Each structure stands twice: as structure tokens, then as C-alpha cells.
Amino acid sequence: MEYKNLGRSGLKVSQLSYGAWVSFGTQLDVKEAKSLLQCCRDHGVNFFDNAEAYASGLAEEIMGQAIRELGWKRSDVVVSTKIFWGGSGPNEKGLSRKHVVEGTKASLKRLEMDYVDVIYCHRPDTTTPIEETVRAMNYVIDNGWAFYWGTSEWSAEQITEAWRIAERLDLVGPIVEQPEYNLLSRTKVESEYLPLYTNYGLGLTTWSPLASGVLTGKYNKKVIPPDSRFALENFKYLSNQSLDDELLRKVEGLKPIAEELGVPLSQLAIAWCASNPNVSSVITGATKKFQIEENMKAIDVIPLLTPAVMERIETVVQSKPN
């Protein structure tokens, strides 16, 4: 496993990481989570991602209990969570100072941890001044509840405003953004955020490298396996968005490239994401150990992505931003 600095910070995260979205609390209990987390550690993963919204907080409880029972040394792992959707009350969501502080404390209690390494603003909050959020995130850091803060699915304009406020107030700006990034979704990472990498040293921890499983090829006949994400009641909406005929044709077109390299399509897709120099870590998801073991082999595929192979991939997906 390779370890990369999270943006311009000194924090080192594994090039591939593991996220609890969908799986923890929805598909997996503590016993199963322990098995998967240990499998990740055995493959060198040190970065684990969560959010207060995942399974309404249960994902944090499961991850925290699993890590405690596994007996891991806290300094050996990087744990992140995200604040935005904390409950149904008017002050239990968003990025007000009140919810940032209360949400962070509640997350730490569920995780059974004194701090998280990184805390994200899970979405932009257009009803709260960005200055209030910047000050609140710095309050969280100053209290030792997190070491770094970042954003998820913010626009380049919003991240830039946060940085300008932080610099004006001599505060800490967001060091990392967590956007969706895969062969079918590229504009933010490869176009919109370009100035931010140089101007602010922004790092990326990207999610959905397999486009919710579409880039494995398992949905190409539009048959949804019963144990897949798209079969879950709360995530059926994703299948309507993702099982588009044109997208599936592109996925089909990638298969011969993966076959010539002698690797599964899923590994090719993950390796492609990780090969972007602006990506600090690619967050993977899995509900079974064999999936983690397969995903981790993507590290060995990165050197196979020569300029010629990358050009062939571009010809098939035709998704490069203008």
C-alpha cells in the first residue's frame, strides 16, 4: 500500500481507503464489520470514513465498537466523519455553529473516540454564512475534537470563499474535499477544482470509484443481484439514475481493455481513480472480505495504466471534461 499526504497537510492516508456508507448498520453488524476492517488493515489501509448520516448514526456506533474490540492503536489509523444531517429538528442539520459543535460531540460519543482525524462538512449549507461554518470548524479543531477539516461536494467557489475567510481571520481552511469521482463522473475533480490544488493545496478523498457498482459490469444486463446495493429499498433510486443504456455501453466497451491487462474491470476502474495525482485516497466500499481483497489489488494495476491504455479508456468513456 502507498501512503499519500492529504493535500498539503502532513497527514498520510492510504491510497485506497474504506467507507461505511450503505454497508455499516444497513447490511453489516459489528461482528461482520470487525472482519472487514481487519481485512482492510491487513492490506495496509489506514483511513476509514464515516458520517453522522450513515444509518442515522448506527454506522458510527458500529465502526467505533469494532475498532475498540479489535484493539487497534488509535495513532495507527485515520478516522473521518461528516456533519450535516444529524436529525429531523430544525437545528439538527446544516452547518450552523450549533449543529457543527453538537453534531461533532454526538459523533464522537457514537464512535467512542476523543477525536476524529478529519471532519467534513457533508454538503454546503446555503442557509448558513460560510464564515460561521469556518469559525465553527476551527472551534472544533481548537478543542481537539478533530485535527483537520474539509468539505464534501462543495463547489470550487464555496471552497475558495472558505479559504479567503480563513486567511482573513488567520484560521485553518479546508484541506480536503470529498467528491464523487469515477470514469463516468469527472468534471469537478478534473476541471472545476483545478485552481484549488495549486492555490490551497487541496487534497481529495474521492467516493464511488465504481459508480455504485456499475463499473464492475454486474448490472450490464439490467438484472439487479439480490445482495447488491441497488436491491436495497433506500437505494433503488440509484439504479434509475445509473442503469442508463449509454452508460452501460461504455462499461461494456471497457471490458476488453481490462481483459487484455488481465484484471477485473473493478480493479481497472479503481486504479484509474487512484492514478490521478490530485487524489489523496480513493474510498472503497465492500460488504464481503473477498471484495476488499479484490479491490486492494487495484494498487498493482496502477503501473499498467500507460498513456496508451489511458487513451484507449478515454476513447471508450468519452467523459473527459472540456
Rank of each mutant, 00 (worst) to 15 (best):
P226S: 13
A166H: 11
T287Y: 06
F24P: 01
K4G: 06
V22L: 12
A33I: 08
E161D: 13
S208A: 15
R229F: 07
K289S: 11
N234K: 14
P321H: 14
K297E: 12
C39I: 07
A211E: 09
V77D: 04
V214G: 00
K105A: 15
F84R: 01
V45D: 02
F24T: 02
G44S: 01
A166V: 03
A274F: 04
R164I: 08
S88A: 11
T284V: 15
R168Y: 14
Y197E: 09
E161S: 11
E132F: 04
V176N: 15
L202V: 07
Q267M: 05
G64T: 05
E167C: 04
G7Y: 08
E180S: 11
G89F: 07
M296R: 04
S281R: 06
V116F: 07
T198K: 15
V189Y: 10
F290A: 12
I313K: 01
I270N: 03
M113N: 04
V301R: 03
A106R: 13
N322F: 12
Q27H: 04
V317S: 03
A136L: 09
W21P: 00
V316Q: 02
T205Y: 02
L268P: 00
L37P: 08
K93S: 13
P179R: 12
I292F: 03
R123I: 08
I299H: 09
V101F: 07
D170F: 09
K320N: 11
G203S: 10
Y219H: 04
A231H: 00
A298I: 05
T26S: 15
G86F: 08
C39H: 02
E60A: 08
I175F: 12
G25L: 06
A136T: 11
K93Q: 09
E314V: 01
K73P: 01
A271M: 01
I224G: 01
K105E: 12
Q158P: 03
V301S: 06
Y193L: 12
K188I: 06
W272F: 14
T151K: 11
G203N: 08
Y148D: 01
N5G: 08
K109C: 05
I257M: 06
L108I: 09
K218Y: 02
R249F: 00
Q241S: 12
A53G: 04
I130H: 08
Q38E: 15
L265W: 04
D170Y: 11
D76Y: 06
R68C: 09
E132A: 11
S107R: 11
K218H: 06
W154L: 02
E32K: 12
I165Y: 03
E132P: 05
Q318E: 12
E293H: 12
W21T: 00
E252A: 10
G7P: 05
